[in-house]
Design a protein around this nucleic acid. Sequence first.
RNA 1: GGGUGGAUACCCAAGCGGCCAAAGGGGCCAGACUGUAAAUCUGGUGGCAAUGCCUUCGCAGGUUCGAAUCCUGCUCCACCCA
Length: 406
Amino acid sequence: MPDAAHQIAQLIRGVDRIVPEAEFRQKLERSLKTGRPLRVKYGIDPTGIDVHLGHTVPLRKLRQFQELGHTAVVIIGNYTALVGDPSGRDETRSRLTAPQVEANARDYLKQVGRIIDLDHAEVHHNGDWFSRFTFLQVLELMRGMTLGQISAREDFAKRIAAEKPVFLHECLYPLMQGWDSVEIKADVELGGTEQLFSLLVARDLQQAKGQEPQVAMTMPILVGTDGTRRMGKSLGNYIGVAEPAEAMFGKVMSIPDEPMRAYFTLLTELPLSDVDHLLADGTNPRDAKEALGKAIVAQYHGADAADQAAAEFRRRASGADPDVIPDVTLDPAQLDANGGIPAFVLVKELGLEVSTSSARRLIAQGGVTIGPDREIVTDPRTIIVVTDGLVVRAGKRKIARARLGG
RNA sequence: GGGUGGAUACCCAAGCGGCCAAAGGGGCCAGACUGUAAAUCUGGUGGCAAUGCCUUCGCAGGUUCGAAUCCUGCUCCACCCA
């Protein structure tokens, strides 16, 4: 194990806050002296199915702890998922059923395994203990917090001010999360900035049970591909860890320039001095973004795939067609005697648009080009004579090659 | 239990008898521009082999030549008082 100073230097990268910082230092030093690794907790609620780069920020931190010899403890919040984390929410989360949560949990773990080493991690489901809770225990747990504390929380306070509902079960969420820490005797808990409140609730509960309280380590919230709002599935601005290399790379390239530094810091291992260099004035931000994209994609798909994705992106950006163009077989019955078909029907049949109405619109706006010469079609009713292998492009991203069945 | 205010397209939100496939904003799509983006500008954003037709304003009925708009019942939601 590297010494405490080294560990701290490494662990502090990208971290928002450590509360309380002195305790963290003490815990680390003691761990080194006694050889007993720290128990580092990270909880994830299986509410959706896509783990995205936003989730990987604390997960990558967890991985760093692992690499330094500490114990990663992953909590699958199958019970908390039934409640729904109110953090950062301005409305109540929609309700999930137990089987949904079950299925999600399995899927999640698979994706989480892309970031941390699950073979050397502890994985718990908080349903293991919460499903056995008696009502009396629930009441006891609720003694841990007052209405004042709860309603002081920013997310609840906002909702109350906006006359939006706050349900009682949501108030229980931080207590449940805190109890998880008691169950697994956490030394450190990781979470996003907005989790600080919940992470600190655990300290009280642990102390009440005679345990040494955990240290909260919060990570900044990663902004999504729109560059402003937090990355999230519902906002449609996320990059999923399970996405194919090219899609992942393309999405990284589509972020605005401003959040690049945060991405480098939180999502890559690149030395920060190198990052400074890449982002220095006078350099082309595209090159920096390309380096960022490669570094991220390589983590999930390998360096070769990352390079290929980058090359492919350059090709597309220069206007060339992609390497692989999907074939779509046309039903010959759609064609007239001369092999012709109206442009808007063609676009729909090739699956480039979902409805004839939208196909008409796209064509009328000059978004459709046909064949090697990229002939622009602007009248939706233009009859296109289809030959086998005809390439049709719709907008910047969609393309298909027509195949005549036969 | 009492009171009040709501439910409109992907989201927010206007409309309160015909001029409504429904303002405005956001998002998204396309085009122009570019350093990959972003920003900006322009256009589009229910469906249909389509100068017209069909379905859509919580649900079910009703009034009317005509209903997102008026009436009745229902469902759901929130807030306030207790």
